[in-house]
Amino acid sequence: MSEKNKILLIGYGNPGRQDDGLGPALVEKLGVNKPGFLTLESNYQLTVEDAYDVALHEIVIFVDAVIDGKIPYSFQVLHPRGMGPLLSHSLAPQSVLYLARTLFCATTKAYLLGIRGYEFDQFEEKLSSKAGANLNAAYDFLIQQFDINNTESGPVNIDIFY
């Protein structure tokens, strides 16, 4: 396995279904001035192969839209959770973490950033205005944690949550 990278951020959701695209939208926003320690991934959903990428990093941050969560966002430590019957191609972030630890001996620390969304039901590739504001707040929070001016060795703050 190759040398570990610092942080992997995976934003997931369907940008074609309004606020469900908050995760990929954050990835896009962070990609504009991406610090070197940060690896960005986005996809419609989490699947089994994400476990391998997680294992290659010291820290993983899963970013998803939430329907009933805290406004504007919540940020919490994530622990691996054993999987029940695999019902679909899609996995929960806890299960991805579990696979990473079980199959690839990962020691990766994990966080879940849930950004509050409001509109999910229509075929529309546009965030609601309230979700857009929450996205900006989540972005500002992450930039603070990443210590963006310390692009080589950062982040320094994020471990305080663990």
Partner: peptide, 13 residues
């Protein structure tokens, strides 16, 4: 059969 699970993940990737 963890080797099968790893195989599936890596082929999928």
């Amino acid at each position: 059969k963890p080797e099968l699970a790893v195989q599936a993940v890596m082929m999928r990737k």
